[in-house]
């Protein structure tokens, strides 16, 4: 149901609105990154923020990801709440030591004496013709790093609400934005600045037969697969964890306990992907409820090939095949 005070925004507009609200509400918030200032961001997620809030709140930084993350850490140590953008998640690899070795560990390393409330915005994933250097889905690397909160919205409303919560969090949050959904058809977004709580999943769809678990750009893929399955009399529940770590395991296991079947869908490569971890947790907690092996539909174990992106990415047809296989088991 559409909230009374909601407007239709697309996902990138929702991100922009959240950033503007955070900047207006809290003088400690600063937005920083390559071209986020005068240019308004590679994907225009920071459009007009420089003009509205000035150069001390919206900082253009050099094209150096390690420098960006490292400087954001230092600003957070001073007491600010930096929101740093790396325009393609692939490029975070150039700043990986600062993310994994420093940002994630500051609180633990110092036994809570110092905190790093940095929000790192990473437009991620394939589906926009970015080839193998602009299509990475890095959630497994990040979830594997203790000390990071990892968030991935799939709707404009969640993008706004979760980003506001991320910026207000006292933990470092990596905010994965599915750029394939940036400019898809909009959705209702509440006008206020209420955040969506971190660590809570969203039940996208009810269903008694199969539980689909998906996040980011794979949620609409699963929605389409679920529609097609329903035409054949198979009702799928869809759980969008939204926060990939800490994971709302209860939401997933409750659904699987009801359906007895689980299909996990992500666009990152299958081997070592987050789907494997979720599958392990589900079998640890729901073993006696399972009617069939947990299945995964994922990107293939290759880089994302420019010409074959449509082959690499999970499709509703591949998800539907997994649904049919688990029901027929």
């Amino acid at each position: 149901m559409r909230p009374a005070n909601a407007r239709q925004l697309n996902l990138v507009q929702a991100v922009n609105e959240a950033l503007a609200m955070a900047l207006a509400a809290d003088p400690d918030v600063v937005v920083m990154g390559q071209d986020v200032g005068r240019f308004g961001g590679v994907f225009r997620a920071t459009a007009d923020l420089f003009e509205r809030f000035g150069e001390d709140r919206v900082l253009d930084t050099p094209m150096n990801e390690s420098g960006l993350v490292g400087a954001a850490i230092g600003m957070a140590l001073y007491g600010m709440r930096p929101v740093a953008e790396i325009p393609f998640a692939d490029q975070m690899l150039a700043g990986f030591d600062q993310i994994v070795g420093e940002l994630s560990r500051y609180r633990y390393r110092t036994a809570g004496q110092f905190a790093c409330p940095v929000t790192l915005r990473l437009p991620y994933g394939a589906g926009v013709g970015g080839g193998m250097y602009h299509s990475l889905s890095p959630e497994a690397y990040l979830v594997h790093t203790p000390g990071l909160v990892v968030v991935c919205p799939s709707t404009p409303a969640d993008a706004k609400g979760l980003l506001l919560s991320a910026i207000r969090s006292d933990d470092p949050v990596v905010f994965l934005e599915p750029k394939a959904l940036y400019r898809r058809a909009g959705g209702p977004v509440p006008e206020g600045d209420a955040g969506v709580p971190l660590g809570r999943a969203r039940k996208v769809r009810d269903g008694d037969d199969v539980t689909l678990v998906a996040w980011g750009a794979m949620v609409p893929v699963c929605e389409e697969a679920a529609r097609q399955a329903a035409a054949d009399g198979v009702e799928c529940a869809i759980i969008d964890p939204r926060t990939l770590w800490p994971l709302d395991l209860d939401a997933i296991t409750q659904s699987v306990a009801e359906t007895g079947r689980c299909v996990i869908v992500h666009e990152a490569p299958r081997t070592g992907g987050l789907g494997g971890e979720i599958a392990a947790l589900v079998q640890e907690h729901c073993f006696l409820h399972l009617e069939a092996p947990i299945m995964r539909v994922a990107g293939f174990d290759t880089p994302v090939p420019h010409a074959l992106e449509h082959v690499y990415l999970p499709t509703p047809q591949r998800v539907l095949a997994a649904i049919e296989a688990t029901v027929a088991y």
Binding site: L59, S66, G67, V69, G70, A71, A72, I73, G74, M75, A76, L77, Y78, G79, M80, P82, D97, Q98, G101, E102, R105, R109, T110, A111, Q113, F114
Partner: peptide, 29 residues
């Protein structure tokens, strides 16, 4: 690798230069 928030000391055993960027960020703020 001493960390003391009261005396404002952060001494890291991480990468040899990672902390220099933190100092720059602190100084920018």
């Amino acid at each position: 690798g001493l960390h003391d928030a009261v005396r404002k000391i952060i001494l890291s055993d991480g990468s040899a230069a990672a902390h220099i960027l933190h100092a720059v960020g602190f100084g920018i703020a």
